[in-house]
Simulated assay, not measured.
Amino acid sequence: MSTPVKRRPGSNKKWAKPALIAAGVVLALLILVLAAQWFTGLDSVKAWMQKYPGQSELPASAPVGLPAWLGWQHFLNMFFIILIIRSGWMVRTSKKPSGHWIRNNKGLIKTRNSPTKITLDLWFHLTLDALWVLNGIIFVIVLFATGQWMRIIPTSWDVFPNAISAGLQYLSLNWPTENGWVNYNALQLIAYFVTVFIAAPLAIITGIRMSGAWPKNATKLNRIYPIGAARMVHFPVMLYFVLFIIVHVTLVLATGALRNLNHMYASSDAVNWWGFGIFAVSLLVMTAAWFAARPLFLRPIASLMGKVSK
C-alpha cells in the first residue's frame, strides 16, 4: 500500500495569488479587446479612423529604407542593454558580492581622493553603461547626419491622433497595415522617440548620480538632485526597457517576422531568411555573453583596469 504524499501547509496557497493575478490580467485584456472591437465598429469612430489611419506622413525629404549602419547599431544597443539589465539586477539583488574592484590611481586619470572600492557587479554595470552611452552618441550623430531622425521624431501634431488610432487597432486585434521600410506607424514612432530621447537620457543622468563619478562634496548640487530621487527613477526606467523589449520583439515576430528581421538585420525589404539567420546568430552571441558574464570571466578583464579582490 503506497504511502500518501504529504504536502506542506501553504504549498497550494503559494501559487494561488499568482494564478489569480494571471487570470485577472487575461480577463481584463479580453474585456478591453471586446470593448475596442465594439468602439471601433461605431460609424463615427470608423469615420475618424479613416481620417487618422494610424500613420503620420513623413517629410518629403525623409529617407526610405534602413541602412546597414542602423542594423549594427540595433545589434550593439540590444547587446549592451540586455547585459546592462542583467548586471543592474545583480547589483540590486546580490547579497554577497562575488568580488570587488578598485581603480588604479595612476596613469592618465588621477584624483586627489582615494579610489572607491566597488563590487565586481557594479564595475561590470558601469563599464557596460559607458559602452552603451558611447554607442548611443554615435547613433544620434549618424541619425541626424543621414536624415533617419525623421522616422522616429514627430514632425506633425497629427502623430498623436494617429497613435490613438493605431492603439485602438492593435487592441481590437485588427492590427494596422504598415510598411516599416518606408514609415513606422504613429504609435511605433512615439515609442521609439520616448525610448531614444527620454528613457535613455533618464537612465544616463540617474545612473551618473548613483555612480562614484558624482562629486560627493558638492553639497548644494546634492541637495538639488538627491540620490534618492535618482534611485526612484532609475529602476522604473529599467522596467520600461524590459517592457519595451518584450513588446518590440513580440510585434516584430507577429507582424511579418521574415520581412521585419530583413529590415533590421539585412537592410533589405525582401522576404527571405537572411535577416532571420543574422538575428539567430545575434541571439547566440547575446546568450553566450549572458552566461559568460560571471566572475570567472569578469575578473581577468576587470584586472586590466584596476585591482580585483575576492
Rank of each mutant, 00 (worst) to 15 (best):
I82N: 02
N113P: 05
K110P: 09
K110T: 15
E178P: 08
H248F: 12
W69Y: 00
T250I: 07
S61M: 12
M150D: 05
I137V: 11
G212D: 15
T146C: 01
S44H: 11
I205E: 11
Q148N: 14
F197M: 01
A23E: 01
N183K: 08
P215G: 03
L66H: 14
W181E: 08
L173C: 08
N217Y: 15
K216W: 13
T119W: 04
T219V: 15
I245L: 14
F75E: 07
N162C: 05
H248G: 05
A22D: 08
Y170N: 10
L243A: 15
T116Q: 13
S268R: 01
S211F: 00
D121T: 09
T177Y: 14
A186Y: 01
L171M: 10
H125W: 06
P63Q: 05
K310A: 09
F276C: 07
A36L: 02
A288Q: 12
T119H: 00
I227M: 07
R259D: 01
Q169P: 03
E57W: 00
G207F: 00
P154W: 03
G147L: 03
A280F: 10
V140D: 02
I208F: 15
K14C: 10
L134P: 05
V285S: 03
S44W: 14
N185T: 02
T3V: 09
A302G: 04
H248R: 04
G10S: 06
F79R: 10
V249A: 07
M305H: 12
W38H: 12
L304A: 09
M264I: 15
A270M: 08
A199G: 03
W15H: 10
K46G: 04
F279D: 04
D121H: 14
T116Y: 03
A35P: 13
K14F: 15
I301H: 12
K106N: 13
W149G: 07
N162L: 05
K14D: 13
P4G: 02
A292C: 10
I118L: 08
W175P: 03
F291A: 00
A60L: 09
W290Y: 14
V233Q: 12
I141P: 13
M238L: 08
W175T: 10
H100I: 02
N217C: 07
V247C: 09
T206H: 10
R112A: 07
R8L: 03
T111G: 04
V140W: 09
R259M: 05
S87A: 15
Y52A: 02
L284M: 15
S98L: 07
L108P: 12
P9R: 11
M49P: 02
A302W: 04
A163I: 01
L27I: 12
L168Q: 00
W48G: 04
I245T: 14
D121A: 13
V33F: 04
I246C: 06
K95T: 13
F124P: 00
T255I: 07
P295L: 02
R299T: 09
I102P: 00
M210E: 08
H263K: 06
F297S: 10
T219D: 13
N174I: 06
K51D: 14
V26C: 12
T146Y: 09
L134M: 14
R112Y: 13
N260S: 08
K6P: 06
I109A: 05
V242R: 01
L296W: 12
I204S: 04
V33Q: 11
A270N: 08
L261S: 07
A266N: 03
T155Q: 11
A288G: 15
M78K: 06
P300Y: 05
T93P: 01
